[in-house]
Design a protein around this nucleic acid. Sequence first.
DNA 1: GTCTATATGCAGATAGAC
DNA 2: GTCTATCTGCATATAGAC
Lengths: 212, 212
Amino acid sequence: MVKFVKNSLNMCPDSTKEKIIQAAQQVFIRKGMDGARMQEIADEAGINKALLHYYFHSKEQLFNDVFYGVLSQLIPGLIEIFKGNEPFLEKIEAIVAEYDTYMSKNPFLPQFVIREINRDPDQLSRFMSDQGLDFSHIEAMIEIEVNKGNIRPISFPHLFANLIGMIVMPYIGRPLFQRKLFRNDPVKYDQFLQERKAVITSFVKQSLKVER
Amino acid sequence: MVKFVKNSLNMCPDSTKEKIIQAAQQVFIRKGMDGARMQEIADEAGINKALLHYYFHSKEQLFNDVFYGVLSQLIPGLIEIFKGNEPFLEKIEAIVAEYDTYMSKNPFLPQFVIREINRDPDQLSRFMSDQGLDFSHIEAMIEIEVNKGNIRPISFPHLFANLIGMIVMPYIGRPLFQRKLFRNDPVKYDQFLQERKAVITSFVKQSLKVER
DNA sequence: GTCTATATGCAGATAGAC
DNA sequence: GTCTATCTGCATATAGAC
């Protein structure tokens, strides 16, 4: 059983522990849990392996602290949106915006989550429940909107998959997309990412709009 | 420099080599390139490590054969669609259908590709070019359709990201989605996957439709 | 807290008999 | 082609001095 530690936001930014967290993020993103090497993390943090193990007994513990540390920063915002009482389409907009601002700060998170989804889905699922993430409210809301005829018929899982897919794909696929669609120009790609929020929002709204 | 081998479709299905390929697919999906163990692949194939190395000199070679073997089955279909002369919306429908049938046969491919996108984007990008995959035709087609006023304005990268995101997300996120949205019922989830094709197609068509 | 040096285990790969 | 046994290297983790 794993304890989910608090994230490390309120930490002295140049403390050794914080340097390790930062370094571990970078390396885990590039290499994943299995591909990452403690040596590489130590190098990136400017310390040695022994000190790394002084702060984090095992690689598993370090990974969990880093992973659930960043993830726990996203969830509260989503919970608030899910539980709120705004009109449905505003909710959609808020979800896109929440992910968008979060992703621009943590562009590596999607790859992170994808890997973890397959590596240890039970732990991840448990974590989300522990954090209080629950879809039942928004799920019910969609049904109501559909029944009232305010939006075109769609189930929550389908809408959710569509939304999350559109949001995260440019981050997950960046190395390939940037090469194939933007001649490997990172500036152009960042601009593309900035346009996503508006594009996705209008894309979804259009597709849910009922015929006049 | 890596040679891209032909896939193993025309192989005796219960030959040792084919058993290895099958086993390797399963293990690589679950664990990724780095997390996978040759021992585990050998076990899954019902042989031992030495024999594994007899057929595939290195783990790297085995991975590449498996990965590019499956991937190369998807690309020709896409190329044909991209280059064809059907009306634009039919093309969209064909792409969704192509992915859909392919994914239902290879539900693991998305995770595979995602991992590889980050592990070795150059090789993957080169492979796609070598196979003749090229977006310029469909990219131009979208511009024309937009200029003619047949569809709402959208750039190819945005539409592509939306489309691919919606298509692959349920496969990438399955372990989590199935737990969170379908009470971990695999039958329900397979049914959900089968509905995706129709849902995505109509979702995209609606969002591209111009105001009357 | 931070280091050097070392222990331990395991995974990829090979040798060689059959 | 298939096996058993073994080598080699490397990654995690610890011991112990400062």
